[in-house]
Design a protein around this nucleic acid. Structure first.
Lengths: 114, 114
DNA sequence: CTCCATATGTAGATAATCTATATAATTATA
DNA sequence: TATAATTATATAGATTATCTACATATGGAG
């Protein structure tokens, strides 16, 4: 298997797809969810997320629809597609291979469990 | 602890420092070592490595010296400094925190061990 | 002698993310 | 009720890491 060179910088895409694999969400909600699930490690910026969502939609990994919340505020929900799920699955494999390789260099099994 | 935003793209620096933490090496050797230790996952390019080594030397994380090999070829060896070791230690902590956070989002303990 | 591996290096391109800025509605606060 | 903070989406421009491509030169194999 070939590791995508952009995996390091591209892990944000994987995380977004993972969130949407669990349920449809709107942008602002993704930022909050990512922050919570990672124990405040990820503070994804709006300026990073929205262009990324637009790109993923163009690539047919996501579809979107607008929905009016109780308070009459309009939110844009995103839904993962079959193509998006396939991409997520591939990225997860790459992530495992990459972290495993880094841990090998950092000292093998002794490091990862330290 | 705050996670360095450039950790994703910056893991190459950590890996280079780790190699030099074990023994002095010259550039070409680092590429080979990284490839071997990672089971061919990392194919670091010369165009990535050499400018990176120069930058790390400027930042006093490394020092260098030239040595003539048996075959009369001159090699430029790099040695890690105290400052470099401190930086490596910090990067390793960030790496652990980051991968842990990603794995949390990807499904917690069930993912990492799957 | 020619080709390949070794060895170091720079320039320019690409891509991911960030900061800064913009807009606007809702909710909380004084 | 005015004002500030939060919610919500969006774009432009800057930064940075890495890559590809190119340049140079030596040593060893055929």
């Amino acid at each position: 298997m070939t590791i995508d060179k952009s995996l390091l910088t591209g892990s944000t895409t994987m995380l977004i797809l993972k969130l949407l694999d669990e349920s449809d969400m709107y942008g602002y909600q993704m930022i909050e969810e990512l922050r919570k699930k990672s124990n405040n490690t990820f503070e994804l910026k709006a300026g990073t997320l929205y262009p990324l969502l637009h790109t993923l939609e163009q690539k047919n990994m996501l579809t979107s629809y607008e929905e009016t919340a109780d308070n009459a505020r309009v939110r844009k929900y995103y839904s993962i597609t079959k193509k998006g799920r396939k991409h997520l699955s591939e990225k997860k494999e790459e992530w495992k291979a990459y972290t495993s390789a880094v841990n090998d260099v950092l000292g093998g099994a002794t490091f990862a469990t330290a």
